[in-house]
Structures are given as structure tokens and as C-alpha cells.
Nucleic acid binder design. Structure first.
Length: 687
RNA sequence: CGCGAGGUAGAGCAGUGGUAGCUCGUCGGGCUCAUAACCCGAAGGUCGCAGGUUCGAGUCCUGCCCUCGCUACCA
């Protein structure tokens, strides 16, 4: 702590503008980043807290096409929503930019050109699906078709969401362009590749050897896993019309890969901010006495620890992140947060439902932050943390002190002449808190820090309970002066130390105490007087209010996946009818009655189940994606319809020799198509 | 046998070789200044399972099981 960097550049992951912000984003990235930067400012450090909207990429153009809008309309809308909710929530960015702004185009293109001129890239040609009608290449997510594994009719080009298998777009049966609806063809295209393999040593030395002990295990382990498996060259351009044009010869009709341009957004946002401040941006990215920290979620580790650093390193004189404290994920009531299933708590809705209670959500998400593993957010915990910690411990302590001060001394801080040993002990205990908090905060342990803060309020409550000023006022009034004087010092310390965690509360408490605005973090450890005798404080006012069961119940109800028939009908139409086939084609298919002899889940998969099926004399192994709908035991003995002459295919190393016929009901549950009649015998043919 | 992280009281977490801890919840008591708040005490754990190393293992080694991620609208 004796020496610290001259300045800090702190980034928070750029939110992707195809949806609003939810509690997962807040807990994983924005709250920890905001706490960290508020703390640094409280210590008087020079900080640039940088963020912005990430507005390129396939998902946005897909969403735009699906909703019949332009990408620009989508990003303008969500940039507005996100920007406003961050502002109201108190995430105090120094600059919140957009990757669609000119400064970002220039910056990203310039870095691309530098890398190109240094000969860093490799150019490679490959075959990709091409939509003749739309005259463009199709990114994986622009192709749907029948999954070759589970026969799900709407698998994407990179993955089937039904069985979870990873796919190549070229493997899909009957691929279809989501743009024109037409059948794509194969066409050769070339792309610029960042040869990460050539930077293996660089990553090895920098992270695996240099940050073995100061980076979080999840981050370090993830990087190690990538490096141990051998880094691969990665294409950094795409054949799309939405994005930043590739600024070199041959780059016509191509754009930068969104993950190439997005992190550069940190740099362009810094430039934009510095220009507005009238200062030079370069020290924030190119000076060795700057500490760069990226706050991200665990899914971004590879981009921030490998790809972006390689870009910075290869470009030239940029510094590398000092730390990348990635958090794990937050679940909601035991389930993964999901936009499409509307399983989320949206920030803008929270702000409407709980006005002026930003700090409650900040506190709950900090106290239960997924720092070392995935954690669960529940509304009952939210209520409990508010009612039993913020209200009962913190708010109540402050209120007790203020009410007593009002009652006994008309709101004037009493004299400190007759301090007992206990009073002195409390006053010196206060001095130890800034150091404890700093230790936690400097090592990115925000959950621990928030609990240390709460300990200060606990200390206050215990002190009051032990000292019993309400009893002593009757016969030892001079001692009560010392007690309330000391208790008020705790309140003042709380006001200052709370600022990073509970900025709204800190502001309110400072105003209630009429605290000297010059009192700062570092004073707490040295100054004996935080709020002087004779100082007048305001009338008591509650800092937090109880959250009632009804409010929690209302939030829970909100979470129920809402049945909106018109929307569901619109969003999940019946599977499109397939083209007619001839009787001859149908006749080629050999359907038979099969009996399930055994069933077991396929290891390391969610949805796949391996069956042993009796077909008369013969027994076959068949894989089917039903594990989420049935337990293996329940299926043994069941009669099913089997397509027996489907070409065998290896799935997860197991050869599947046929296919089970399944239907899907309106809830999405898979139903076996099977002969109900117990007399249907195994192996008999179906026509 | 793909790789990474996690699996410690009802819940959330700390604890990396030396008598299992913290917060919330539960139960009992105290107090009454305070938002039925606060303070004290108690109950509650075979530290995922099985082996091994060690005088001694939650902590080190080996194997296995489970959860999450690497792979989707997600941070």
C-alpha cells in the first residue's frame, strides 16, 4: 500500500445491446467494478472507469431481421435503456461510449491496419455457406436445418439447442438460410486470422509464470487450459454487412469480428473521455505506471486474457492488464438466467419496482457475489439481507444513535471530555476498519469487504447494548456524553466507508450528519475526531425500509414464465411443413416396433440417452435426446417406433444404429411415438 | 477416460497440515434507545464418496460421483 500505480484504467465488460441489463450482469461485472473504482477515488487515486455499448455482431443483425427492424434501431433502443438504467443505478462510469461511434471505428481500424502492416495476420481461405438470393455468406447463426444427431428441425449452424451437440454449419441436413429462406451453397471465402499459436510463449510467460499467485484460480485455470491445449489461429474478420469494415485491400464486404472490435472499445471510450476532459489518453493505455484492470464474467476470460492481450502486445506499445478478476455466474431461484425464457430480474424493472432502493440490490448482489463459484439469487434472500442486515443492523444502529442524540442533546454532538476505557476502545477500533476494507478491496474480495463494513455497524450495536446510555442518562449523564460522542464517530466512519458499496446511503447519511465534505477515507485511520463536539446533526430519518412479503411475492409471480398465447404463437410457430416426398421415398424407410431393454444417460451430456432396443432377434444401440424429459428407469420395457435403416452415426463416441420417433407436445416435452397395444411384437414392421 | 472451477452446519460463505469458523435462519434468555429492531447463549457439520501419505488431513496424493462453465439468446 506504500506504493501504488500513478493511475488506473478500469474497464467493465461492454454490455451487448441486444437486451437490457439484468442482475447477472450487475453481480458479475458492474457492481464489483463500480465498488473498486469508487474505492480508488475515495483514496484519491487517478482513475478512468471505462465502458460502453457493444453494438456489432451477428446476434444483433439476427434480432433486427427477426423483428423487421434495422440493426441501428435495435442498438439505439437498447443503448438508451442500458445507459439510463446504469445512470439511475449509480454505476459511475467516467465514460460510457458506443462501438458504433466514429472514434471507435477509427481506433479499431487503425489497430487492424497496424497489425496488418506488421504482418501479424495470416490470410486463409475456407468454404462457407453462401446465400445466393441475399448475396452474402452466412454466419453460423444465420443457418438453420435439421440436426444430424437428434433430428431437431431447427438446429443452428454452430450448435443444436435440442441435444446440445456442437455442429458445423455444413453438417446440417437440409440447411436453410434464415435471411432468404433459401438453400445455401458452398463458396470459398478468405479471412484474416490472428495466429494465437505464435504467441503461446508470450501468454505462457506473462500469465502462467507471472500471475500464478495473484490471479483468481478460475481465471488462471481457464487460461492454462487453453494454453495446454495449444492456441489456434482465430479468424478476426467476418462476411457480414453489420460491423466495422475491414480497412485493408481485399476487405470489401467484410467486417471485423465482433470480438476483435469490442475490447478495442475500451480504448476508444478512453479516447473519447480524455478528449472531453482535455487530457491525453495515451498514458491510460501505454504507460507502465498505469494499472489496467478488466472486470468481466467467466465467459469472457479467453477474450480478455488471451486474444485482446495478444492484440495489444502485437500492436506495440500497449500495457497489459494487471488483473482480470472474472466472476462466475449468478443463477436466479435455482435456474440459469435466460432472456428468452424471461427468467431474469431486469435492472430497469427493478428500478421501477423498488424506487430509491438501489443500494439494497447493490448490497445483496455484493454480499452474495459469485466470486469463487456460481451463486444463486433468491428473492427471499434479497428480503432477508435487506430486513435483517441493512435495516436491522446498519439502519437501526444509525437511527438509534441519532434518536438518542436528538433526545438528549437536541441533535448536537456531545462533548468528549469524559471518555471511558470502553469509549476509547471503540474509537481506536474505528481506525482499524479502513485498513481491513482496503486489504479486501485491493485483492478484489468485495463480498468480504461488504461484510467487514457490516461488522462496523455490528460493533456499534454491541457497544450501545453494553454501554446502555438510556439507563445511565438517569444517574451518570456525563458518561452518556462520551458514549454518544463515540457512537456518532462510528456513524461518521460508516458514512465514509459505505460510499463504494452503498453510494446512495452514504450520501444520505453524510447529509443527515451534516458531515464535513472534506472528511475522507484516509482520515479515518488517523484522525481522532470525525464529527466534532458541538456539531449539529439533522433530525433522524430512516436509511432503509423493510421489504414486505407482498413485495417479494409480487416479484416471484413476475418470474413465472408468462403465458402470452399471441407471443408464443408468434415466436414459436409450428415446425414448418417439409416439402412433399414421393411414396417411393417413404417406402425406403424401414419402421419397426422396438422394445427398450435398457436406458442410461450418456455421460457429459444433458440431453442424450443411450438405449438398447430389441427388434425381434436383433438388439441395437440407439442414442436419442430425451434425457431431460424422462428418467432411464421409467423407459425400460416401453414399446417404441424405430427407424431402423437410418445410416449409423457416432455420437459422443457411441454408434447410434437407428432413430426413435418422438413427438413434441405444446409444452415442449418430447413424447414417444409408440404402439400402445401390448400385442405389438418387437421387430414387426410398421407401414 | 477432453479441459477448467466448485462440492465445508437448513441457506450463503471463510478456512491449504496441528483442538472445524463467520453471516443469515432456528431455539432459549436479556434489554427497551431503536424500523417487533438490538445484545448474550444454545442446538445444528462422519468438511461429496473411497483409498493413500503423515505422529496428525477440510487442507497433500490417487480414483470415483455431482454441479457449473468452456458451447446457446448470457457476465
Amino acid at each position: 500500500m506504500s506504493s501504488h500505480p500513478k493511475r488506473y484504467t478500469v474497464t467493465a465488460a461492454l454490455p451487448y445491446t441486444n437486451g437490457p441489463i439484468h442482475i447477472g450482469h450487475l453481480a458479475g461485472v458492474y457492481i464489483p467494478a463500480d465498488i473498486y473504482t469508487r474505492y480508488l477515488r475515495a483514496k484519491g487515486r487517478s482513475v478512468a472507469f471505462i465502458c460502453g455499448s457493444d453494438e456489432h455482431g451477428v446476434a444483433i443483425s439476427l434480432k433486427a431481421k427477426k423483428e423487421g427492424k434495422t440493426p441501428q434501431e435495435i442498438i439505439d433502443h437498447f443503448d438508451g435503456v442500458i445507459r439510463a438504467s446504469f445512470e439511475e443505478f449509480g454505476i459511475a462510469f467516467d465514460n460510457y461510449s458506443r462501438t458504433s461511434r466514429a472514434v471507435h471505428y477509427e481506433t479499431a481500424q487503425e489497430i487492424f491496419k497496424i497489425l496488418d502492416s506488421k504482418g501479424v495476420f495470416e490470410l486463409n481461405a475456407s468454404e462457407q455457406l453462401y446465400d445466393e438470393a441475399a448475396q452474402q455468406f452466412l454466419a453460423d447463426r444465420f443457418v438453420t436445418g435439421t440436426c444430424p444427431i437428434c433430428q431437431h428441425p431447427e438446429a443452428y449452424g454452430d450448435q443444436c439447442e435440442s441435444c446440445g451437440s456442437s455442429l458445423n454449419a455444413t453438417e446440417l441436413i437440409a440447411p436453410k438460410s434464415t435471411i432468404s429462406g433459401g438453400k445455401p451453397s458452398l463458396k470459398t471465402t478468405k479471412h484474416w486470422y490472428l495466429p494465437l499459436d505464435r504467441y503461446q510463449d508470450f501468454i505462457q510467460k506473462w500469465i502462467l509464470e507471472g500471475h500464478k499467485n495473484d490471479w483468481k484460480p478460475n481465471v488462471y485455470g481457464q487460461v492454462k487450459s487453453w494454453v495446454d491445449n495449444g492456441l489456434q489461429a482465430r479468424a478476426v474478420t467476418r462476411d457480414l454487412d453489420w460491423g466495422i469494415p475491414v480497412p485493408v485491400e481485399g476487405g470489401e464486404n467484410k467486417v471485423l469480428y465482433v470480438w476483435f472490435d469490442a475490447p478495442i472499445g475500451y480504448i476508444s471510450s478512453t479516447k473519447e473521455w480524455a478528449a472531453a476532459q482535455g487530457i491525453d489518453w495515451e498514458p491510460f493505455w501505454k504507460s507502465d505506471d498505469t494499472q489496467l484492470v478488466h472486470f468481466i464474467g467467466k465467459d469472457n476470460i479467453v477474450f480478455h486474457c488471451i486474444i485482446f492481450p495478444v492484440i495489444l502486445h502485437a500492436t506495440g506499445d500497449y500495457i497489459l492488464p494487471e488483473n482480470v478478476p472474472a466472476n462466475e455466474f449468478l443463477n436466479l431461484e435455482g435456474q440459469k438466467i435466460s432472456t428468452s425464457k424471461n427468467w431474469a430480474v431486469w435492472l430497469h424493472e427493478y428500478l421501477d419496482d423498488f424506487p430509491d432502493q438501489q443500494d439494497v440490490l447493490r448490497y445483496v448482489l455484493t454480499a452474495n457475489a459469485p466470486e469463487t463459484k456460481d451463486n444463486d439469487f433468491t428473492w427471499s434472500e434479497f428480503q432477508a439481507r435487506n430486513n435483517s442486515e441493512l435495516v436491522a443492523i446498519y439502519g437501526n444502529f444509525v437511527n438509534r444513535v441519532m434518536v438518542l442524540t436528538q433526545k438528549y442533546y437536541k441533535g448536537s454532538v456531545p462533548p468528549a471530555q469524559n471518555l471511558s476505557d470502553e469509549d476509547q476502545a471503540v474509537l481506536s477500533a474505528i481506525k482499524s476498519f479502513p485498513g481491513k476494507l482496503e486489504k479486501s478491496l485491493e485483492s478484489y474480495r468485495f463480498r468480504e469487504a461488504s461484510q467487514e463494513l457490516m461488522q462496523l455497524a455490528r460493533l456499534g450495536n454491541k457497544y450501545l447494548a453494553d454501554a446502555e446510555p438510556w439507563k445511565r442518562i438517569k444517574n451518570q449523564p456525563e458518561q452518556v456524553e462520551g458514549i454518544l460522542y463515540s457512537a456518532l464517530q462510528i456513524c461518521a466512519a460508516l458514512a465514509v466507508l459505505s460510499e463504494p458499496f452503498l453510494p446512495f446511503t452514504a450520501k444520505k447519511l453524510k447529509s443527515l450528519l451534516q458531515l464535513n465534505p472534506n472528511l475522507n477515507w484516509d482520515d479515518l485511520a488517523v484522525s481522532a475526531v470525525l464529527i466534532p463536539s458541538g456539531h449539529q446533526i439533522a433530525a433522524p430519518e430512516l436509511l432503509f425500509k423493510k421489504i414486505e412479503d407482498e413485495q417479494i411475492e409480487a416479484q416471484r409471480l413476475k418470474l413465472q414464465p408468462q403465458e402470452k398465447p399471441e407471443n408464443i404463437a408468434h415466436e414459436t410457430p409450428l415446425a414448418a411443413k417439409k416439402p412433399d416426398i414421393s411414396f417411393e421415398q417413404f417406402e425406403k424407410m424401414d419402421f419397426r416396433v422396438g422394445t427398450i431393454l435398457s436406458a442410461e444417460k450418456v455421460r457429459k451430456t444433458n440431453k442424450l440417452m443411450q438405449f438398447s432396443i430389441a427388434l425381434g432377434e436383433e438388439t441395437r444401440t440407439i442414442i436419442s435426446g430425451v434425457a431431460e424429459h424422462y428418467s432411464p428407469e421409467a423407459l425400460v420395457g416401453k414399446k417404441v417406433t424405430v427407424l431402423t435403416n437410418l445410416a449409423a452415426r457416432k455420437i459422443k463416441g457411441i454408434e447410434s444404429q437407428g432413430m426413435l420417433l418422438l413427438g413434441e407436445n405444446k409444452d415442449g416435452k418430447l413424447i414417444f411415438v409408440g404402439p400402445e397395444d401390448a400385442h405389438a411384437s418387437s421387430g414387426s414392421s410398421i407401414a
